[in-house]
Nucleic acid binder design. Sequence first.
DNA 1: CTCTACATTGATCGCACGGTCAATGATCAC
DNA 2: GTGATCATTGACCGTGCGATCAATGTAGAG
Lengths: 190, 190
Amino acid sequence: MGGPKKPEQERCAAILAAAYEIALAEGLDAVTARRVATAAGISTGLVFFHFQSKDGLLEALLGVLLDGTLDALSDSGLERLEPWDRLERMIRVELERLVEYHGAVELIFAFYFSRRDDLFRTRIESNFGRYLQAFSPVCREVAVGTRIQGDELAATVVALVQGASIQAIRNPEIFDPEAILATLRAVRPA
Amino acid sequence: MGGPKKPEQERCAAILAAAYEIALAEGLDAVTARRVATAAGISTGLVFFHFQSKDGLLEALLGVLLDGTLDALSDSGLERLEPWDRLERMIRVELERLVEYHGAVELIFAFYFSRRDDLFRTRIESNFGRYLQAFSPVCREVAVGTRIQGDELAATVVALVQGASIQAIRNPEIFDPEAILATLRAVRPA
DNA sequence: CTCTACATTGATCGCACGGTCAATGATCAC
DNA sequence: GTGATCATTGACCGTGCGATCAATGTAGAG
């Protein structure tokens, strides 16, 4: 028994990488301590040594997913654009990210729907909530001088983006951000 | 051994009802043959006698869910309305159904994301596809004489409705169809 | 009443899972 | 070199699962 020693950081990263790979390829259910250990080339016990429990491993995996996919929301660098252009630009960025990361986004939804307890949901919920916060300011600006209510527009935009994520998961090849963006431009008040 | 005999139809319905109840209350993972049998007041073997396998039971349960929640899409009875009013009305109907059936819709998503194989996905996919078919005609009518493309509008509407379903699941108490509907009315071309 | 076909039972199998742990290897300070 | 510390192993435990099946009860046909 015993084996080569590696620093904790490096090991954890390797285990998480293996878990990520398995989850992407075969789904969350396939992420078991044994399979992850085998994929990472280590023993099962080491997984629990580094992550305490399977839930610990999954929490860490969820953290990787959320960091990698939902963390770039911002309209910085767009200050000089008109509100409508800024909003369209933000939506475009999000929709194009969906195409790129649809696998990870699918896993986030799998996390969300796999459990009803709060272990994963509150984490994901708070990340989803940041969508609303990110879109709210520009939506309020867009609404000024129109019949639109800023907060209602923000809720609608968030729903639209999240619905688009479902479409991107359902059929990544066919999903086309331009269809949605073109419709938004067409209904944009002059 | 042995016990009272009931017709197959009645038994299956009772088993499905028990499975539905457990799924709604505790999630898909809690739907095991043993738990369903206990909840239905029968033995475990009988579940497999009537549904062959756990997947058979889940397929039947999914059928119940899909029949009960996604099956009422139609714009019949709205012929006399203007296209925009018809579209708004259809969206309103769908959004209000979401509030009522968010538990069942959540289970459908749980089915969708719990597996990557085609057993459940194709079923759900075909039901989702009917959304697009249902919204397409009226969207094409709405688009006539505008810069909007009918099929692009339909794709956008479907994304919006499905995104709204996520919102309704995330927080059924707070979710407000009127916010989205008001925004749609506000951007509606005169 | 008897025979046949079917519904029902619950013990049982094999399996994969999450988790534990004593034993062992590697590393480093001194 | 020596001892303390920590990473690592893999066998092992208990559990709950899906599934099977011989035994048994039930109902209806003749």
